[in-house]
Amino acid sequence: MKCKKCGGVAVINMRHHRLALCADHYLDWFVTYTQRTIEKFRMFGSGDRLLVAVSGGKDSLALWDVLLRLGYQADGLYIKLGIEHQGYSDRSLDYVQRFLETSEAANPPRAPRPTQHVLHVVDIKGTYGESIPELARRTGRGRGKPCSVCGLVKRHVMNRVAQEGGYAALATGHNLDDEAAVLLQNTLRWQTGYLARQAPVLEATQPGLSRKVKPFCRLYERETAAYALVRGIDYIYDECPHASGATTIFHKELLNRLEGRSPGAKHSFYLDFLRAKKKGQLLLPAEEVELHPCEKCGQPTTAPGLCAFCRLWQ
């Protein structure tokens, strides 16, 4: 199979794009496609300061790499969750730090813009007193799995750091498979409120809320993995030990079976949903949630008094 651009040996074939590319042209295509996505959804501009949530995994490190190559001012945020199983959190942080050490030399930007970037590290146990698994055990939230506590804490910390740092947007490495799996899950249960909110850009609708953007939302998960491999980004390959058996993974497997039978199925499922929503073809409930500042941390919350995050630590 040959590269469509140069006739060299293709390293990847994207059947839904009918496009096979060699390593060099794939790296170029991937960066350009990300930039087009940023522009298509008006995620941010060239002068905006960005905070990238990095976990040490392929998607987030690839995203940080691409944003730096594009010349954006992008700082990283690593949240140390305290998952000690086989040193998972320590190893994840090692990958992020190694990326940071090499990224300066390995990221010649396409445009001559400043690429000074820093990594913020928030250690949950060091900052708040308990790791995520300890917090989940004590509170009993999440039916024995720490995933719901983890999500809640990460959303709070990401928003806090983005607010304190005055960042224009918080960028996460969610890819099309992540978004399609969430869409499938919400559709199967007709969670209309969640369907109304699902978007590549979550606007800062209230003071104290940060804008959230997903620049990889049009890229398949195998494409972000391929980018990391071809680009030589060393990432934590092991899955979070708590993710085993997760519903998201099951939904991704289902969607991949559809994709195998019908190339482009995931692409259409997610992007046609966004198009239909934009055109007003889906009658989803308008968001009319009243938010007010948490009495303790000041972050917007629907609950009276303390927000869900602050209630965890009582």
């Binding site: 392929k58 498979d177 998960e221 195998r222 993995a225 899955e239 708590h242 993974i249 497997e253």
Partner: peptide
Amino acid sequence: LVAVISGG
């Protein structure tokens, strides 16, 4: 073979 699915 490199597994590409992640999530939780």
